[in-house]
């Protein structure tokens, strides 16, 4: 009887899978290609050299419009910067100093600033969302910290989007200030192609092609979205390994105890 139930169960599962495929097939935008990120798979880990390059692309290209507001300068230690490097990176920008001894936050209508420190958040290009919209023709450049988690198939999508800018097909009339990108839902995006060859100069000698920069900055964004990824997967392997052994032992004990019954 149980056997028959299992056969029916698997039939149900197959039908479910069929419906699942229909669900997936109905997308509006073009499906991004699959890229083998170093973070993929059970043993996935960060390529720290790549993350550093990605940080460079972010600061030199993306940071003009996009924030990564969940990242602190101190977090850069996790991608391989030393504490003195972090201090230097942070000190190169300024943040509002807050009220001084006399309670003033502004002097001559300018906010009083101090150099940023490791415990400060990475500075945002705009003071608030309204200013960001105003500077970008009404479009809001989204925060990038969680981008690869906040889109379906995030990493592949971001990479496809960054490298997917094209001439609009002849049938499509672009609205004012819009650009064509088949990976973006609806095909029209307010961001112009952000990357061009040699837009940054890598210190490690890697050639800065559009493809390379896109991969690097995407890898960097995987890290900003899931900084715990490496620790999670490493711990996970140990935990699952332990549980499989423990469960096998429990099964043996169970067999032993139940064998008394018959």
């Amino acid at each position: 009887m149980l056997k028959r139930n299992f056969i029916i169960f698997f039939t149900v599962a197959t039908i479910s899978g069929f419906f699942g495929n229909i669900v997936n097939a109905a997308g509006v935008a073009m499906k991004p290609g699959e890229y083998a990120w170093s973070t993929n798979g059970v043993f996935g880990s960060f390529d720290r050299k790549q993350l550093k390059r990605g940080w460079q692309v972010y600061t030199e290209v993306c940071a003009g419009c996009h924030s990564v507001r969940l990242i602190y300068y101190r977090n850069l230690a996790e991608i391989g910067f030393s504490s003195s490097e972090i201090k230097k990176i942070a000190a190169s920008v300024e943040v509002p100093a807050g009220p001084n001894e006399d309670g003033e936050t502004h002097k001559d209508d300018e906010p009083i600033m101090r150099p940023a420190k490791a415990f400060d958040k990475v500075i945002s290009p705009y003071p608030n969302k309204i200013a960001a919209r105003a500077a970008n023709g009404g479009a809001l450049p989204p925060d990038l910290s969680l981008m690869t988690k906040a889109r379906i198939n995030g990493p592949n999508y971001v990479h496809a989007l960054l490298t997917g800018f094209k001439e609009a097909p002849s049938g499509l009339k672009l609205s004012d200030g819009m650009y064509y990108n088949p990976y973006y839902p609806g095909g029209q995006i307010a961001m112009a192609a952000p990357l061009s060859a040699e837009a940054v100069e890598y210190s490690d000698g890697t050639k800065a092609t559009v493809e390379q920069m896109s991969k690097d900055v995407t890898a960097f964004l995987i890290w900003t979205a899931e900084p715990e990824l490496e620790e999670r997967k490493r711990l996970g392997i140990k935990v699952i390994f332990f549980l499989i052994i423990f469960t096998a032992m429990l099964y043996a004990v169970k067999r032993q105890i139940w064998s008394k019954l018959n």
């Binding site: 988690k149 379906i152 996970g236 935990v239 699952i240 469960t247 429990l250 169970k254 139940w258």
Partner: peptide, 28 residues
Amino acid sequence: VKDAFGLGFFLVIFLGFVFFAPNFFGEP
């Protein structure tokens, strides 16, 4: 003991999701 064995089996699946596909059931 039967429940304990079932629990062990369940934990492998549950923590498999937690560690390797934590956002599988979620919405981006």
